[in-house]
Design a protein around this nucleic acid. Structure first.
Lengths: 320, 320
DNA sequence: GTGAAAGCGCTAACAT
DNA sequence: ATGTTAGCGCTTTCAC
């Protein structure tokens, strides 16, 4: 903080330029000088001011990431995996929460742009209304959409093939009266799972709320009142866990009386009673691919838009 | 990015100094000039370069936060709450994961210091071995320990009174053979919960692993083999959920055959079968208080060290 | 109340 | 291979 690169240079008996080059590992510095500089830096306890470096070099080695809700274990795990990937390089993660509100998301993206993040990882909370924020960011820096995406926006995206996941799931379930309990299709996953379900069963009954366990409990009560189907396909695991909890409280047996499925395979899915049959999203893979694409964008000039849909896998347990 | 404060100043017909003062809301600028500057900025689409501002003003409006494991819903919720608090002010969160490894934590803290965060929120992953990282940070900027703390380090801390929580819990459970299934006391919560348990029951049997659901499942199997006690007190909810799942698989009834408790009250605690009796940590309150203390440190000169232990509350459900 | 000028600490041209 | 110099865009004295 007190000691600058000038002090290091002086101590090593070279110019600041050479010191800078040596410290940043550029080649074109005689080995002896390089060693001297490194030694001087460590002796003086030199801590480079990356803010100054960023101002000059116009790169902050920071990636911005905006998620709808960090408290949701699915997104939290995604963040953890991204963080893990970044750590191997030398970039940091500036994290922001949109709280599923496009206007908040817009503000958060702007704050990240103001901070001059090198690139942005965005999980757009709304299929349509996230478009403005996304466009604003994409106009300035590389952006990769993660998990969710904005309708009609032609930018890179890494996520899972929700429709195919639904398809496989429905095929596993076989025939019988089924009801889908999901979220209003405000985000792209809600949309594509709903659509995937409808296509797979050819129409089908549908109950729409949000992606919370509370909605699952509510929906279960409604189902109980209206007459239980044979299968309840839920839009994600939180909903399914809510359904399971409510059903159990009402003395309904799963899977004997009704079968229930989730989507995501969060860590608690296998802990429920009965263990939840669900569709597994490989978050580590998604995160790794997203970071890879990001680096690709950051490195080369303007690489092609990448759209990667990873195939999710069925995780069959006892609930269905 | 292209338009700088010079452009804004020129357009408003004032000097850059006045423009700067107007934009940052300082007083001592004539109202007319202020309006002109603001108008010019918005017309030009001016986006201040906060990196340059940080270099000069020596403050980044960024708070660093290091957590042991962001994927853990307890920490994720804490992060979410902190983020929520910060958003109201105008600071951002630079997040890092220590993966429960002190050497990683050390590196992450250093990275945050290099980035000149204004202050640090640290959840030290180890009672002893986090001391070095903590000291390094505290020597440069205000630091508040969150949830966990380092032994013998006299700095601010905000968390929960684990011992009192254990005490109340044990009192609620009443007499009977009880076994504690917790984590090796490597972090301060593991330590104080274990100690609280021992003090409350006056000794007591103990099974130590880590804070994961997997350990809960393993411990349950061991308990089953060695003879089930009347009560299993778990060190956190993840362990308890693991115990519950394994018990259920083995056909053991809870709470008829054995009673089980957790600690934390994560969102999934109420979804288990039976719903988990646990000790509730008010994360929003903890986060709010931590941010308050941080601002206090940031504002005043050197305010006294603050140590705030919030009292957790019993959350009695059906498992015990 | 306002402006001119001096840096914040670093990297990148441009010399040599 | 190395040094000199000129900024990056802003805030902050210091005059007026």
């Amino acid at each position: 903080m007190d000691v600058t690169i000038h002090d290091v240079a002086a101590r090593a008996g070279v110019s600041v330029a050479t010191a800078s080059r040596a410290l940043s590992g550029q080649r074109g510095v005689r080995q002896a000088n390089r060693d001297n500089v490194v030694a001087a830096a460590s002796e003086l306890g030199y801590e480079p001011n990356v803010v100054a470096a960023s101002l000059r070099s116009r790169t902050t080695h920071t990636i911005g990431m905006v998620v709808p809700r960090i408290g949701n274990p699915f997104f939290a795990t995604l963040v953890e995996e991204v963080e893990k990937q970044l750590q191997d390089g030398k970039r940091s993660l500036l994290l922001a929460n949109s709280d599923y509100r496009p206007e908040v998301e817009r503000r958060q993206v702007q704050a990240l742009l103001d901070r001059r993040v090198d690139a942005l990882l965005l999980i757009p909370c709304h299929r349509e209304r996230s478009g403005e924020a996304l466009a604003a960011a994409a106009a300035r820096i590389p952006v990769v959409q993660l998990d969710l995406r904005v309708d009609g926006f032609d930018g890179s995206w890494v996520g899972v093939d929700n429709e195919s996941g639904m398809h496989e799931l429905v095929r596993h379930l076989g025939a019988g009266r089924t009801v889908y309990v999901g979220s209003e299709p405000t985000d792209s996953a809600a949309q594509s799972r709903l659509e995937g379900y409808r296509r797979a069963v050819g129409g089908g009954e549908v109950l729409l709320g949000d992606f919370s366990k509370e909605w699952g409990e509510t929906a279960a009560r409604r189902l109980l009142a209206d007459g239980l189907p044979e299968v309840v396909v839920c839009g994600n695991d939180s909903i399914a866990l809510g359904v399971l909890a409510e059903l159990s409280r009402q003395g309904v047996g799963v899977p004997e009386d009704v079968r229930v499925t989730g989507f995501d395979d969060i860590p608690y899915a296998e802990l429920s009673q009965p263990a939840l049959t669900t569709v597994r999203q490989p978050q580590a893979e998604i995160a790794a691919e997203a970071v890879r694409v990001l680096h690709e964008h950051l490195a080369g000039g303007k690489p092609a838009t990448r759209r990667t849909a990873i195939k999710p896998t069925l995780q069959i347990r006892s609930s269905a």
